[in-house]
Design a protein around this nucleic acid. Structure first.
Lengths: 220, 220
DNA sequence: GTTGATAACTTATCGTTGTTCAGATAAGTG
DNA sequence: CACTTATCTGAACAACGATAAGTTATCAAC
């Protein structure tokens, strides 16, 4: 006996209140994505949880992926805010850099779906699509799927501030920023992509990678 | 007009020659995976390219994912051979480690498709089951999906050799190996996944990351 | 309070997916 | 020849994302 609705039907929204339903869909989809993963979360499950029929979702989103992208942008705002907070704290630029790196890692591990979609769902080698990922150095803000690139740009700017504060970099700021990000990304990507691997110690790896990249990029 | 076979039908294999068909399936699947990606490559497309019906694939593979796992194992085998060659060269363990790292990076950049298949084609975090990637710490050799762990063990052993040669490690050999691999993977993954990004300088990034991880893991 | 427009929503259905099942065919053996 | 069995096929299943066409509720205007 399958296919029965498990949730109570939600009453029809009033005129002009459609955005309410849209938010409900996002909320339900987020819960399911995080619980079951992207593939296992079906349009029908989301709709059932909201209390509407499956095609109703298409009134608010072009397709399934658009729901994920909306969630991605929504949560990536948190990362940008977090980095903005750290940038305003009265810390040395070196410590700021390290904390931003840690915030980046924590964010990736706490929002693996969003992280994967933005930084790892990139193109197959033949590059059929051009979704997500930071592709251009100066992306237009507000476009769906570009908030991750904005966050990356913050890291680049932060490194330039470090250099301006008198700490010598072992590489040019661009190269240093790229190496820094690559290291952090390698950690997050590895942990996300291989969650069942018996990693030695997650916290030691996080601290170790932060040491690795900061010491490797900044000169003592 | 869809569903028509585009390839000529392949004749039935003789008894005991099933492995031949298995290889054909792997070859066709690899080409399609690289061209279209995992999701877009359907069982029926693979079967059509081989010249056989779709259910025939299930004589040789448990499911679609098993095909991917077999391909990943092939890639890992290539890597293990490369590392084995370097291990036999008359070099100091420190230099061996660096050359293995460089070999890993070069391998990834020269075979981006295979690398992507093996290390980056992971799906959303929750659903990663037994596709490529290194999974168990002490896998039985020859088992599908375990060659990645073997390659990883090579790195661990290499680090233990470094330690035995009197060079102190900043972390335990497992943690050090994981950090090392994460850094290298971050570089390769970033370059592969964002080929259109205006990276500062590829060779400088490669050398920089090698310095980063070796100096970060080994103490001077 | 009836009407008309339309936002909000449903039912039915399409084409495709991975996978299974029952059977057919051909190859090798005694 | 008969028998076994590896190899392979056609039909079908349940579930998927998505679409088409029709229905219902809401609100403004008269």
């Amino acid at each position: 006996m399958a296919g029965f609705s498990t949730a109570a039907a939600s009453p029809r929204k009033r005129r002009g209140e459609g955005h309410t339903r849209r938010d409900e869909i996002l909320q339900a989809a987020k819960k399911l994505f995080l619980q079951e993963g992207y593939e296992a979360t079906t349009i029908r499950k989301i709709a059932d949880r909201v209390g509407v029929s499956a095609p109703a979702l298409y009134l608010y989103f072009a397709d399934k992926e658009a729901i994920m992208v909306a969630l991605c942008d929504q949560t990536f705002g948190f990362l940008i805010d977090k980095i903005g907070e750290i940038e305003q704290q009265p810390l040395g630029p070196r410590e700021q850099l390290r904390r931003c790196g840690e915030a980046y890692i924590r964010f990736g591990l706490e929002h693996p779906q969003e992280y994967w979609l933005t930084f790892m769902s990139g193109n197959t080698p033949k590059q059929i699509k051009s979704q997500g990922g930071h592709r251009a150095r100066n992306p237009e803000a507000g476009q769906p799927g570009t908030t991750g690139a904005i966050a990356f740009q913050h890291v680049v700017d932060l490194l330039k501030n470090v250099e301006a504060a008198g700490i010598k970099l072992n590489y040019g700021p661009e190269t240093a920023a790229e190496l820094l990000w690559m290291g952090l990304h390698g950690l997050v990507a590895a942990l996300i992509n291989n969650p069942e691997f018996e990693w030695s110690n997650r916290e030691e790896l996080i601290g170790g990678m932060l040491d690795l990249v900061t010491k490797g990029v900044l000169s003592d």
